[in-house]
């Protein structure tokens, strides 16, 4: 394959297949069902904050590209399941985002530490906020 106009081209190796398989195993979702309609992205309330759209992340996973982990998208995703009710192919995109977070968290990467919160913030925040933050953003 020769590089296109952008000067870049995709190469595929066994490592791509294993990354995709890992995400499918952790999420329980069949990524190949996605036809890139973008419904998940249009329903997502947080795309303004995301570096990649949710549908873009799904495409990266389809291609087995670990670059899916490079954007802030899985961390901005708040698991509101708007994508889940909208997907015409029955993929729970929120599960895929969780799988991506888990790959990072299990490699001893934490997205947030409680040490960053001030006493005032800890006093103001209800347990429900702090507990869910910790469950989602730390391993």
């Amino acid at each position: 394959m020769s590089p296109g106009k952008s000067g870049q081209y995709l190469t595929f190796g066994p490592e791509n297949a294993s990354f995709k398989a890992k995400i499918e195993e952790l999420s329980g979702e069949n990524i190949d069902l996605c036809m890139q309609c973008g419904g998940c992205s249009s329903g997502c309330p947080l795309t303004e904050e995301m570096e990649f759209l949710p549908s873009t992340v799904i495409r990266y996973v389809q291609l087995g590209m670990e670059e899916a982990l490079d954007s802030n998208t899985p961390w901005v995703c708040i698991t509101c399941f708007n994508c889940e009710v909208r997907c015409p192919r029955g993929i729970d995109v929120a599960n895929v985002m969780e799988a991506l977070r888990q790959v990072a968290l299990r490699a001893k990467y934490d997205r947030f530490s409680l040490d960053e919160l001030t006493s005032e913030e800890l006093m103001e925040l209800p347990q429900i906020a702090i507990i869910s933050n910790q469950r989602k953003l730390t391993g």
Partner: peptide, 13 residues
């Protein structure tokens, strides 16, 4: 609960 959350917020984990 705030007494614990402010000094030992890790209990939320």
């Amino acid at each position: 609960a705030n007494a614990f959350m402010v000094h030992y917020p890790e209990i939320s984990r």
